[in-house]
Amino acid sequence: MEKLVFEIQINASPEKVWSVLWDDISYRQWTTAFAEGSFYQGTLEEGNIIKFLDPNNNGMFSRVEKNIPAKEIKFLHLGEIYSGVEAPQDWGEATEAYILEENDEGTKLKSEIQTPAEFKGFFEDKFPKALGIVKNLSENQL
């Protein structure tokens, strides 16, 4: 398992950044960095299963392990989805967390990823782009 950490400083409140991360319209915008047309199905309550999908119904499914609005959310990735069919994977502690820390300049957004080695390059390429879009939306959206 590889641990990756990505951080970006955003000149906006944690509440604004949280809204950009998880409101449907802005979520679809910033996740284009991973796959055009990305969206999620489900609700973000702790214990719920969420499906992260592309327009072809491919993606992954995960359990919400922790949700403290405007502060932290953590997902445990359980498996992949191919054409809408769930395929459980034995990834162990494959997690993805978003941590928002308020500071004098606004919010530091930190993403901590525990990933199998085969996905490391993908995340290293895509995550900085995704966080840049979150920053842009958070600082420039009304």
Rank of each mutant, 00 (worst) to 15 (best):
M1W: 09
E2W: 00
K3E: 14
K3M: 11
K3D: 06
L4C: 10
V5F: 02
I8W: 07
I10T: 07
I10C: 10
P14Q: 09
E15N: 12
V17A: 09
W18F: 02
W22A: 04
D23Q: 13
D24A: 12
D24C: 01
I25W: 02
R28Q: 09
R28E: 06
Q29K: 15
W30H: 05
W30L: 06
T31P: 03
A35Q: 08
A35D: 08
G37D: 04
S38V: 00
S38A: 12
F39A: 04
F39C: 10
Y40Q: 06
G42N: 11
G42Q: 12
L44N: 04
N48Q: 15
L53K: 09
L53Q: 14
N56W: 05
M60Y: 12
F61Y: 15
N67L: 11
I68Y: 08
I68F: 10
K71S: 14
E72R: 12
I73F: 02
H77E: 07
G79I: 04
G79L: 08
Y82H: 11
S83I: 03
G84L: 07
Q89G: 04
Q89D: 02
D90A: 13
W91P: 02
W91S: 04
G92F: 11
T95Y: 11
E96S: 10
I99Y: 06
L100F: 01
N103D: 09
D104L: 12
D104P: 00
E105M: 10
G106D: 03
G106V: 03
T107V: 06
K110D: 01
A117K: 14
E118A: 05
F119H: 10
K120N: 12
F122N: 13
F123L: 08
E124R: 11
D125F: 02
D125K: 11
F127A: 11
P128I: 03
K129L: 11
A130P: 07
L131H: 02
G132L: 09
V134Y: 01
L137K: 00
L137R: 02
S138C: 06
L142K: 14
